[in-house]
Nucleic acid binder design. Sequence first.
RNA 1: GCGGUUGUGGUGAAGCGGUUAACACUCCGGAUUGUGGCUCCGGCACGCAUGGGUUCGAUCCCCAUCAAUCGCCCCA
Length: 418
Amino acid sequence: MLTNAPRGTKDILPNQIDGWIRLENKIRELCALYGYEEIRTPTFEHTELFLRGIGEGTDVVDKEMYTFTDRGDRSITLRPENTASVVRAYLQNKLYANAGLTKLFYIGSMFRYDRPQAGRLREFHQFGVEALGEKNPAVDAEIILLAWDFLKSLGLNDLKLKINTVGCPACRPIFKRKLTEYFTEEADELCGDCRRRLEKNPLRILDCKVDGLKEFMEDAPKIETCLCDDCREHFNALKKFLTAAGVEFEVDNRLVRGLDYYTKTAFEIQYAPLGAQSAVAGGGRYDGLIKEIGGDDTPAVGFAAGLERILLALELQKLLPEQDKKIAAFIVSSGAAAETYAFKLLIDLRRKNISATMDFGKKSMKAQMKAAAKSGAKFALIIGEDEVAAETVTIKNLETSAQEVIPVAEVSDKINCL
RNA sequence: GCGGUUGUGGUGAAGCGGUUAACACUCCGGAUUGUGGCUCCGGCACGCAUGGGUUCGAUCCCCAUCAAUCGCCCCA
Protein backbone atom coordinates (compact mmCIF):
# COMPACT_ATOMS: atom_id res chain seq x y z
CA MET A 1 0.00 0.00 0.00
CA LEU A 2 1.24 3.39 -1.03
CA THR A 3 -0.02 5.00 2.13
CA ASN A 4 1.74 2.66 4.52
CA ALA A 5 5.29 3.07 5.70
CA PRO A 6 7.35 -0.12 5.39
CA ARG A 7 6.92 -2.60 8.19
CA GLY A 8 8.98 -1.78 11.21
CA THR A 9 9.37 1.90 10.39
CA LYS A 10 7.58 4.80 11.99
CA ASP A 11 6.93 8.44 11.36
CA ILE A 12 7.87 10.73 14.17
CA LEU A 13 5.00 13.17 14.23
CA PRO A 14 4.93 16.80 15.28
CA ASN A 15 3.25 15.94 18.56
CA GLN A 16 6.07 13.56 19.42
CA ILE A 17 8.99 15.67 18.37
CA ASP A 18 9.38 17.43 21.71
CA GLY A 19 10.36 14.19 23.37
CA TRP A 20 13.02 13.52 20.76
CA ILE A 21 14.43 17.00 20.99
CA ARG A 22 14.53 16.71 24.73
CA LEU A 23 16.53 13.50 24.49
CA GLU A 24 18.92 14.96 21.97
CA ASN A 25 19.48 18.07 24.04
CA LYS A 26 20.14 16.00 27.12
CA ILE A 27 22.58 13.83 25.21
CA ARG A 28 24.56 16.78 23.89
CA GLU A 29 24.56 18.47 27.25
CA LEU A 30 25.77 15.39 29.08
CA CYS A 31 28.36 14.45 26.50
CA ALA A 32 29.81 17.94 26.66
CA LEU A 33 30.02 17.51 30.41
CA TYR A 34 31.87 14.22 30.02
CA GLY A 35 34.05 15.47 27.20
CA TYR A 36 32.69 13.43 24.30
CA GLU A 37 32.43 14.92 20.83
CA GLU A 38 29.80 14.16 18.26
CA ILE A 39 30.54 12.20 15.12
CA ARG A 40 28.23 11.40 12.23
CA THR A 41 29.10 8.47 10.04
CA PRO A 42 27.39 7.29 6.85
CA THR A 43 24.13 5.41 7.10
CA PHE A 44 25.58 2.60 5.01
CA GLU A 45 28.97 0.99 4.84
CA HIS A 46 30.71 -1.79 2.96
CA THR A 47 29.13 -5.03 4.10
CA GLU A 48 32.55 -6.36 4.90
CA LEU A 49 32.97 -3.87 7.72
CA PHE A 50 30.10 -5.41 9.62
CA LEU A 51 31.07 -8.96 8.79
CA ARG A 52 34.46 -8.34 10.30
CA GLY A 53 33.38 -6.01 13.05
CA ILE A 54 30.28 -7.64 14.42
CA GLY A 55 31.22 -11.13 13.48
CA GLU A 56 29.80 -13.80 11.24
CA GLY A 57 27.73 -16.21 13.22
CA THR A 58 25.98 -13.50 15.18
CA ASP A 59 22.25 -13.08 14.61
CA VAL A 60 22.70 -9.47 13.61
CA VAL A 61 25.01 -10.36 10.75
CA ASP A 62 23.47 -13.67 9.76
CA LYS A 63 19.84 -12.71 9.54
CA GLU A 64 19.16 -9.10 10.33
CA MET A 65 21.17 -6.98 7.91
CA TYR A 66 19.80 -4.88 5.11
CA THR A 67 22.34 -5.77 2.49
CA PHE A 68 22.19 -4.99 -1.21
CA THR A 69 24.44 -4.63 -4.20
CA ASP A 70 24.72 -1.12 -5.53
CA ARG A 71 24.99 -0.14 -9.18
CA GLY A 72 28.74 -0.32 -8.99
CA ASP A 73 28.51 -3.93 -7.86
CA ARG A 74 29.57 -3.18 -4.30
CA SER A 75 27.98 -5.02 -1.41
CA ILE A 76 26.49 -2.37 0.83
CA THR A 77 24.75 -2.70 4.19
CA LEU A 78 22.59 -0.30 6.10
CA ARG A 79 24.30 0.01 9.45
CA PRO A 80 22.82 -2.32 12.08
CA GLU A 81 24.83 -0.54 14.76
CA ASN A 82 27.34 2.25 14.82
CA THR A 83 30.43 1.03 16.61
CA ALA A 84 32.04 -0.55 13.58
CA SER A 85 31.50 2.65 11.61
CA VAL A 86 32.97 4.79 14.34
CA VAL A 87 36.02 2.60 14.47
CA ARG A 88 36.32 2.76 10.70
CA ALA A 89 36.08 6.56 10.79
CA TYR A 90 38.58 6.67 13.63
CA LEU A 91 41.10 4.77 11.55
CA GLN A 92 40.35 6.39 8.22
CA ASN A 93 40.60 9.91 9.63
CA LYS A 94 43.44 9.07 11.97
CA LEU A 95 41.62 10.48 14.93
CA TYR A 96 44.12 8.69 17.16
CA ALA A 97 46.80 11.07 16.04
CA ASN A 98 45.91 13.93 18.31
CA ALA A 99 44.92 12.21 21.49
CA GLY A 100 45.75 9.26 23.61
CA LEU A 101 42.06 8.80 24.20
CA THR A 102 39.46 9.63 21.59
CA LYS A 103 35.98 10.18 23.00
CA LEU A 104 33.08 10.20 20.59
CA PHE A 105 29.32 9.98 20.61
CA TYR A 106 26.68 9.58 17.93
CA ILE A 107 22.94 9.75 17.46
CA GLY A 108 21.34 8.12 14.47
CA SER A 109 19.15 5.47 12.95
CA MET A 110 20.15 1.86 12.70
CA PHE A 111 18.57 -0.91 10.64
CA ARG A 112 17.88 -4.47 11.58
CA TYR A 113 15.54 -6.89 9.86
CA ASP A 114 13.82 -8.15 12.99
CA ARG A 115 10.26 -8.99 13.67
CA PRO A 116 8.76 -5.69 14.83
CA GLN A 117 7.37 -5.40 18.31
CA ALA A 118 6.85 -2.61 20.77
CA GLY A 119 10.34 -1.28 21.39
CA ARG A 120 11.77 -3.14 18.43
CA LEU A 121 11.70 -1.57 15.02
CA ARG A 122 13.52 -2.22 11.78
CA GLU A 123 14.68 1.35 11.65
CA PHE A 124 15.41 2.53 15.14
CA HIS A 125 17.52 5.18 16.76
CA GLN A 126 20.49 4.83 18.98
CA PHE A 127 22.60 7.17 20.98
CA GLY A 128 26.02 5.75 21.65
CA VAL A 129 29.37 6.61 23.08
CA GLU A 130 32.81 5.25 22.30
CA ALA A 131 36.11 5.82 24.09
CA LEU A 132 38.99 4.64 21.94
CA GLY A 133 42.58 4.18 23.01
CA GLU A 134 42.60 3.39 26.71
CA LYS A 135 42.54 0.17 28.66
CA ASN A 136 42.09 1.64 32.13
CA PRO A 137 38.91 0.25 33.71
CA ALA A 138 38.15 3.76 34.92
CA VAL A 139 37.08 4.46 31.35
CA ASP A 140 34.69 1.51 31.47
CA ALA A 141 33.28 3.04 34.61
CA GLU A 142 33.04 6.48 33.03
CA ILE A 143 31.13 5.05 30.11
CA ILE A 144 28.73 3.17 32.35
CA LEU A 145 28.20 6.25 34.47
CA LEU A 146 27.48 8.35 31.44
CA ALA A 147 24.79 5.90 30.39
CA TRP A 148 23.44 5.71 33.89
CA ASP A 149 23.41 9.45 34.49
CA PHE A 150 21.75 10.00 31.16
CA LEU A 151 18.85 7.73 32.01
CA LYS A 152 18.56 8.97 35.56
CA SER A 153 18.62 12.59 34.53
CA LEU A 154 15.57 11.96 32.39
CA GLY A 155 13.73 10.97 35.52
CA LEU A 156 13.55 7.23 35.00
CA ASN A 157 13.15 5.05 38.06
CA ASP A 158 13.42 1.30 38.45
CA LEU A 159 16.53 1.08 36.32
CA LYS A 160 18.77 -1.87 36.88
CA LEU A 161 22.44 -1.93 36.03
CA LYS A 162 23.94 -5.32 35.35
CA ILE A 163 27.61 -5.90 34.74
CA ASN A 164 29.71 -8.88 33.85
CA THR A 165 33.03 -9.75 32.35
CA VAL A 166 33.25 -11.98 29.33
CA GLY A 167 37.00 -12.45 29.43
CA CYS A 168 39.50 -11.91 26.66
CA PRO A 169 41.06 -14.02 23.92
CA ALA A 170 43.45 -15.38 26.52
CA CYS A 171 40.87 -16.73 28.92
CA ARG A 172 37.51 -16.91 27.22
CA PRO A 173 38.41 -19.96 25.13
CA ILE A 174 39.17 -21.79 28.34
CA PHE A 175 35.78 -20.90 29.73
CA LYS A 176 34.09 -21.84 26.49
CA ARG A 177 35.78 -25.18 26.44
CA LYS A 178 34.76 -25.90 30.00
CA LEU A 179 31.20 -24.96 29.22
CA THR A 180 31.11 -27.13 26.17
CA GLU A 181 32.48 -30.06 28.08
CA TYR A 182 30.08 -29.56 30.93
CA PHE A 183 26.96 -29.10 28.85
CA THR A 184 27.82 -31.91 26.49
CA GLU A 185 27.39 -34.23 29.39
CA GLU A 186 24.02 -32.69 30.11
CA ALA A 187 23.00 -32.58 26.46
CA ASP A 188 19.98 -34.79 27.01
CA GLU A 189 18.58 -32.24 29.44
CA LEU A 190 19.10 -29.25 27.18
CA CYS A 191 16.41 -27.64 25.08
CA GLY A 192 16.71 -27.68 21.32
CA ASP A 193 18.04 -24.16 21.12
CA CYS A 194 20.74 -24.89 23.62
CA ARG A 195 21.85 -28.03 21.89
CA ARG A 196 22.50 -25.86 18.86
CA ARG A 197 24.25 -23.26 21.03
CA LEU A 198 26.55 -25.92 22.33
CA GLU A 199 28.61 -25.65 19.18
CA LYS A 200 28.11 -22.07 18.11
CA ASN A 201 28.02 -20.15 21.35
CA PRO A 202 27.95 -22.09 24.60
CA LEU A 203 27.96 -18.83 26.58
CA ARG A 204 24.41 -18.26 25.47
CA ILE A 205 23.22 -21.39 27.22
CA LEU A 206 23.80 -19.61 30.49
CA ASP A 207 20.98 -17.15 29.96
CA CYS A 208 18.55 -19.53 28.33
CA LYS A 209 15.02 -18.96 29.57
CA VAL A 210 14.16 -22.62 29.30
CA ASP A 211 17.21 -24.22 30.79
CA GLY A 212 18.27 -21.37 33.02
CA LEU A 213 16.52 -22.74 36.08
CA LYS A 214 17.47 -26.36 35.71
CA GLU A 215 19.58 -27.74 38.50
CA PHE A 216 22.68 -28.56 36.48
CA MET A 217 22.97 -24.79 35.85
CA GLU A 218 24.01 -24.39 39.45
CA ASP A 219 27.16 -26.38 38.91
CA ALA A 220 28.00 -25.00 35.49
CA PRO A 221 31.50 -23.57 35.21
CA LYS A 222 31.74 -19.94 36.30
CA ILE A 223 33.66 -17.36 34.36
CA GLU A 224 35.42 -16.22 37.51
CA THR A 225 37.25 -19.48 37.75
CA CYS A 226 38.63 -19.09 34.25
CA LEU A 227 39.60 -15.45 34.12
CA CYS A 228 43.19 -14.53 33.51
CA ASP A 229 44.81 -12.19 36.01
CA ASP A 230 44.44 -9.22 33.74
CA CYS A 231 40.71 -9.73 33.26
CA ARG A 232 40.12 -10.43 36.91
CA GLU A 233 41.93 -7.29 38.00
CA HIS A 234 40.14 -5.28 35.39
CA PHE A 235 36.77 -6.45 36.59
CA ASN A 236 37.60 -5.85 40.24
CA ALA A 237 38.80 -2.36 39.45
CA LEU A 238 35.63 -1.62 37.54
CA LYS A 239 33.53 -2.63 40.52
CA LYS A 240 35.68 -0.47 42.73
CA PHE A 241 35.16 2.57 40.50
CA LEU A 242 31.43 2.03 40.24
CA THR A 243 31.14 1.67 43.97
CA ALA A 244 33.15 4.84 44.47
CA ALA A 245 30.71 6.64 42.18
CA GLY A 246 27.82 5.43 44.27
CA VAL A 247 26.00 3.47 41.60
CA GLU A 248 24.19 0.31 42.50
CA PHE A 249 24.97 -2.56 40.21
CA GLU A 250 24.42 -6.23 40.07
CA VAL A 251 27.00 -8.70 38.87
CA ASP A 252 25.20 -11.05 36.55
CA ASN A 253 27.54 -13.68 35.30
CA ARG A 254 24.97 -14.82 32.81
CA LEU A 255 25.02 -11.51 31.01
CA VAL A 256 26.39 -12.08 27.56
CA ARG A 257 26.63 -9.72 24.64
CA GLY A 258 25.45 -10.74 21.22
CA LEU A 259 28.19 -9.11 19.23
CA ASP A 260 31.50 -10.87 18.87
CA TYR A 261 33.73 -7.93 19.52
CA TYR A 262 33.14 -7.61 23.24
CA THR A 263 35.94 -8.39 25.68
CA LYS A 264 36.17 -8.04 29.43
CA THR A 265 33.43 -5.65 30.54
CA ALA A 266 29.85 -6.21 29.44
CA PHE A 267 26.96 -4.27 30.87
CA GLU A 268 23.31 -3.63 30.34
CA ILE A 269 20.79 -1.25 31.83
CA GLN A 270 17.28 -2.57 31.99
CA TYR A 271 13.94 -0.97 32.49
CA ALA A 272 11.73 -3.89 33.40
CA PRO A 273 8.31 -2.34 32.71
CA LEU A 274 9.06 -2.43 29.00
CA GLY A 275 8.54 -6.20 28.98
CA ALA A 276 10.42 -8.32 26.52
CA GLN A 277 12.40 -5.40 25.15
CA SER A 278 13.65 -4.14 28.47
CA ALA A 279 17.29 -3.46 27.62
CA VAL A 280 17.48 0.25 27.31
CA ALA A 281 21.24 0.57 27.04
CA GLY A 282 24.04 -1.91 26.67
CA GLY A 283 27.68 -2.07 25.84
CA GLY A 284 31.09 -3.02 26.98
CA ARG A 285 34.74 -3.21 26.12
CA TYR A 286 35.96 -4.25 22.70
CA ASP A 287 39.71 -4.37 22.83
CA GLY A 288 40.05 -6.52 19.76
CA LEU A 289 37.84 -4.68 17.31
CA ILE A 290 40.14 -1.93 16.14
CA LYS A 291 42.86 -4.37 15.24
CA GLU A 292 40.31 -6.62 13.58
CA ILE A 293 39.34 -3.75 11.31
CA GLY A 294 42.91 -3.03 10.40
CA GLY A 295 44.26 -0.62 12.99
CA ASP A 296 46.89 -1.02 15.65
CA ASP A 297 46.03 -3.05 18.68
CA THR A 298 43.92 -0.44 20.51
CA PRO A 299 41.65 -0.92 23.48
CA ALA A 300 38.18 0.69 23.53
CA VAL A 301 34.87 0.78 25.39
CA GLY A 302 31.41 1.98 24.47
CA PHE A 303 27.70 1.56 24.74
CA ALA A 304 24.52 2.21 22.79
CA ALA A 305 21.10 3.21 24.05
CA GLY A 306 17.81 2.71 22.23
CA LEU A 307 15.99 5.98 21.95
CA GLU A 308 12.57 4.55 21.11
CA ARG A 309 12.75 2.37 24.18
CA ILE A 310 13.75 5.28 26.36
CA LEU A 311 10.85 7.26 24.99
CA LEU A 312 8.51 4.36 25.76
CA ALA A 313 9.85 4.26 29.29
CA LEU A 314 9.38 8.00 29.70
CA GLU A 315 5.84 7.62 28.44
CA LEU A 316 5.13 4.86 30.95
CA GLN A 317 6.34 7.11 33.72
CA LYS A 318 4.39 10.01 32.31
CA LEU A 319 7.53 12.06 31.96
CA LEU A 320 6.58 13.46 28.60
CA PRO A 321 4.36 16.42 29.38
CA GLU A 322 2.74 17.98 26.38
CA GLN A 323 4.23 21.28 25.56
CA ASP A 324 1.88 23.46 23.65
CA LYS A 325 3.53 26.05 21.54
CA LYS A 326 1.38 29.09 21.79
CA ILE A 327 1.60 31.91 19.40
CA ALA A 328 1.08 35.54 20.30
CA ALA A 329 -1.32 36.77 17.67
CA PHE A 330 -4.00 35.32 15.43
CA ILE A 331 -5.20 37.62 12.69
CA VAL A 332 -8.85 37.56 11.72
CA SER A 333 -10.04 39.39 8.64
CA SER A 334 -13.11 39.80 6.53
CA GLY A 335 -13.29 41.15 3.01
CA ALA A 336 -10.83 41.22 0.13
CA ALA A 337 -9.27 44.54 1.06
CA ALA A 338 -8.83 43.41 4.62
CA GLU A 339 -7.07 40.24 3.54
CA THR A 340 -4.18 42.11 1.97
CA TYR A 341 -4.02 44.48 4.88
CA ALA A 342 -4.04 41.53 7.26
CA PHE A 343 -1.37 39.71 5.32
CA LYS A 344 0.91 42.73 5.48
CA LEU A 345 0.36 42.96 9.23
CA LEU A 346 1.11 39.26 9.58
CA ILE A 347 4.47 39.61 7.88
CA ASP A 348 5.30 42.82 9.75
CA LEU A 349 4.69 41.18 13.10
CA ARG A 350 6.91 38.24 12.28
CA ARG A 351 9.64 40.57 11.16
CA LYS A 352 9.38 42.19 14.55
CA ASN A 353 9.82 38.78 16.14
CA ILE A 354 6.22 38.35 17.20
CA SER A 355 4.76 34.95 16.43
CA ALA A 356 1.62 35.36 14.39
CA THR A 357 -0.64 33.37 12.16
CA MET A 358 -3.91 33.68 10.32
CA ASP A 359 -6.55 31.54 8.75
CA PHE A 360 -6.02 31.48 5.02
CA GLY A 361 -9.27 29.71 4.31
CA LYS A 362 -11.52 32.74 3.88
CA LYS A 363 -13.94 31.48 6.43
CA SER A 364 -16.59 33.40 8.32
CA MET A 365 -15.41 35.70 11.03
CA LYS A 366 -16.98 33.42 13.56
CA ALA A 367 -15.07 30.45 12.25
CA GLN A 368 -11.86 32.44 12.28
CA MET A 369 -12.44 33.45 15.87
CA LYS A 370 -12.99 29.84 16.75
CA ALA A 371 -9.75 28.93 15.11
CA ALA A 372 -8.04 31.74 16.97
CA ALA A 373 -9.31 30.46 20.29
CA LYS A 374 -8.30 26.92 19.49
CA SER A 375 -4.83 27.95 18.45
CA GLY A 376 -4.20 29.16 21.94
CA ALA A 377 -3.16 32.57 20.69
CA LYS A 378 -3.20 35.27 23.28
CA PHE A 379 -4.58 37.96 20.99
CA ALA A 380 -6.96 38.07 18.11
CA LEU A 381 -6.25 40.93 15.74
CA ILE A 382 -9.50 41.74 13.99
CA ILE A 383 -9.53 43.52 10.67
CA GLY A 384 -12.58 44.51 8.64
CA GLU A 385 -13.44 47.34 6.33
CA ASP A 386 -13.53 49.87 9.15
CA GLU A 387 -10.03 49.04 10.32
CA VAL A 388 -8.65 49.15 6.80
CA ALA A 389 -10.17 52.56 6.20
CA ALA A 390 -8.93 53.98 9.50
CA GLU A 391 -5.61 52.11 9.47
CA THR A 392 -6.37 50.55 12.79
CA VAL A 393 -6.68 47.08 14.26
CA THR A 394 -9.13 45.75 16.80
CA ILE A 395 -7.04 43.86 19.29
CA LYS A 396 -8.83 41.39 21.48
CA ASN A 397 -7.30 39.63 24.43
CA LEU A 398 -8.65 36.11 24.12
CA GLU A 399 -8.09 35.32 27.75
CA THR A 400 -9.89 38.32 29.21
CA SER A 401 -12.14 39.12 26.24
CA ALA A 402 -11.16 42.78 26.56
CA GLN A 403 -10.76 44.52 23.23
CA GLU A 404 -9.84 47.92 21.89
CA VAL A 405 -9.12 49.64 18.62
CA ILE A 406 -5.58 50.88 18.11
CA PRO A 407 -3.55 52.25 15.19
CA VAL A 408 -2.00 49.49 13.15
CA ALA A 409 1.47 50.92 13.76
CA GLU A 410 1.11 50.34 17.46
CA VAL A 411 0.15 46.67 17.35
CA SER A 412 3.58 45.23 17.96
CA ASP A 413 4.29 47.55 20.87
CA LYS A 414 0.94 46.76 22.36
CA ILE A 415 1.53 43.02 22.16
CA ASN A 416 5.01 43.35 23.56
CA CYS A 417 3.95 45.29 26.60
CA LEU A 418 0.95 43.13 27.44
C1' G B 1 12.42 -17.01 11.87
C1' C B 2 8.36 -19.51 15.41
C1' G B 3 3.62 -19.31 18.33
C1' G B 4 -0.82 -16.43 20.30
C1' U B 5 -4.23 -12.15 20.02
C1' U B 6 -6.25 -8.20 17.27
C1' G B 7 -7.68 -4.99 12.76
C1' U B 8 -15.13 -0.91 12.29
C1' G B 9 -14.97 6.97 10.42
C1' G B 10 -9.91 11.94 12.71
C1' U B 11 -10.11 9.47 17.96
C1' G B 12 -12.38 6.03 21.68
C1' A B 13 -15.44 2.45 20.72
C1' A B 14 -21.02 -0.54 20.06
C1' G B 15 -22.95 -4.08 16.70
C1' C B 16 -25.79 -8.45 14.11
C1' G B 17 -25.48 -13.50 8.77
C1' G B 18 -30.34 -9.91 5.92
C1' U B 19 -34.01 -2.72 5.77
C1' U B 20 -30.82 3.98 6.64
C1' A B 21 -23.51 0.48 10.66
C1' A B 22 -25.19 2.73 17.59
C1' C B 23 -23.05 6.22 21.01
C1' A B 24 -19.26 9.86 22.69
C1' C B 25 -15.48 13.22 21.46
C1' U B 26 -13.16 15.86 17.45
C1' C B 27 -14.25 18.31 12.97
C1' C B 28 -17.56 21.24 9.58
C1' G B 29 -21.94 24.42 9.12
C1' G B 30 -26.03 27.15 11.31
C1' A B 31 -28.75 29.77 15.49
C1' U B 32 -25.75 36.23 15.26
C1' U B 33 -25.99 41.78 11.28
C1' G B 34 -17.86 41.80 11.56
C1' U B 35 -15.98 38.19 17.21
C1' G B 36 -14.15 32.55 20.18
C1' G B 37 -14.50 29.55 24.65
C1' C B 38 -21.24 27.95 27.22
C1' U B 39 -26.00 26.30 24.99
C1' C B 40 -29.11 24.52 21.00
C1' C B 41 -29.79 22.54 15.89
C1' G B 42 -27.84 20.06 11.66
C1' G B 43 -23.85 17.47 8.79
C1' C B 44 -19.69 14.04 8.38
C1' A B 45 -18.11 5.53 7.39
C1' C B 46 -18.52 5.62 -2.14
C1' G B 47 -18.67 1.48 3.82
C1' C B 48 -16.61 -2.14 8.66
C1' A B 49 -7.47 -3.59 7.02
C1' U B 50 -6.76 -5.82 1.74
C1' G B 51 -7.86 -9.88 -1.71
C1' G B 52 -10.42 -14.23 -2.45
C1' G B 53 -14.21 -18.01 -0.98
C1' U B 54 -18.88 -20.06 1.37
C1' U B 55 -24.06 -18.27 1.17
C1' C B 56 -30.13 -16.29 -1.87
C1' G B 57 -27.37 -12.51 1.12
C1' A B 58 -21.68 -11.05 5.14
C1' U B 59 -18.66 -6.01 8.69
C1' C B 60 -19.96 -10.29 11.32
C1' C B 61 -18.34 -17.75 8.72
C1' C B 62 -13.64 -19.79 6.03
C1' C B 63 -8.71 -18.98 3.58
C1' A B 64 -4.69 -15.89 2.18
C1' U B 65 -2.12 -11.36 2.48
C1' C B 66 -0.80 -6.98 5.06
C1' A B 67 -0.33 -4.47 9.68
C1' A B 68 -0.29 -3.81 14.98
C1' U B 69 0.49 -6.18 19.49
C1' C B 70 2.18 -10.10 23.19
C1' G B 71 5.59 -14.13 24.06
C1' C B 72 9.98 -16.85 22.04
C1' C B 73 14.46 -15.57 19.66
C1' C B 74 17.69 -11.45 19.42
C1' C B 75 19.11 -6.91 21.01
C1' A B 76 19.20 -1.01 22.04
